[in-house]
Write a protein that binds this DNA or RNA. Structure first.
Lengths: 135, 135
DNA sequence: ATTACATTTCACCAATCGGTTATATAACCG
DNA sequence: CGGTTATATAACCGATTGGTGAAATGTAAT
């Protein structure tokens, strides 16, 4: 319990059945029964999955007669998207830095040059590690 | 076992300790011991977490003397990013549809029209922002 | 060869997870 | 009212998870 929202969201997304439910929901509201058939799961199992998704803010449920249709709540993905996107940016910047580094290498062969042909897979532990940003 | 990559990645991200390790790794390679101190976890616990992250392709480990430093492997986030981004697009399109719907409502006031001007939810989405370099 | 250090592996534990069946609640329909 | 339908809850089960302490495995340094 008392798990942070990001963990709750990622945990909810870590199950293929749950992701399939979201995919199904992307094309419209659906009831529990309509879900339990194609997934070959019992109805209580679907109810549990829906509860996990709802608790993560990824879906919401309405009330219509006996049924309680579930509907996609796309805003619930924002936290996950923000987190992943931050690292995606870091990833792109890594490539940018690598680009720059290679360019600098080419233009000015440094004093510590060890350009011995097949440069190793760069398992270099590099004291002054290149990446510096974030937190 | 035989869990799909997406589930593996999301499950790896669903733990706050693991995300903190990734954040730490974003500023450079780190050893197991350097990690176990700030996290107040025993070394076996860190080793397990690192194994989960490595299996998800989010980090890689090298070998340097006694230590086996871990390094961020940003490409491992691609699958997660792609999945989330797909739903983010759906989310934006939802707003687009809402825009269109509201516009149609305004141009052709239906029988249930309720054109009380000021209640515009004011969602000025900055569309097609930042994401350069598509996957 | 011995010692010291970093890491992994092993055996265990409590808690959570994803599923089941069986039962309860709730809303509609005669 | 009684019956049907949709969903929820309860109790249980096996597998997985996140943690531990203790022992095994490198790898350097002396």
């Amino acid at each position: 319990m008392t798990s942070d929202p990001l963990s709750t969201t990622f945990a909810a997304l870590a199950d293929p059945t749950r992701r399939a439910i979201l995919a199904r929901l992307a094309s419209g509201e659906t009831t529990v029964k309509e879900l339990s058939e194609p997934f070959e799961l019992t109805q209580p199992a679907i109810t549990k999955h829906l509860k996990v998704l709802e608790h993560a803010g990824l879906i919401s449920r309405s009330r219509s007669a006996q049924t309680r249709p579930a509907k996609l709540e796309p805003a619930g993905l924002q936290v996950a998207w923000q987190w992943v996107d931050e690292y995606r940016r870091f990833w792109e910047e890594s490539f940018d830095r690598l680009d720059e580094y290679l360019k600098r290498l080419q233009s000015t062969p440094g004093p510590d040059s060890k350009p011995s042909g097949s440069n190793a897979p760069s398992r270099d532990k590099e004291k002054s590690n290149g990446h510096r940003r974030k937190h």
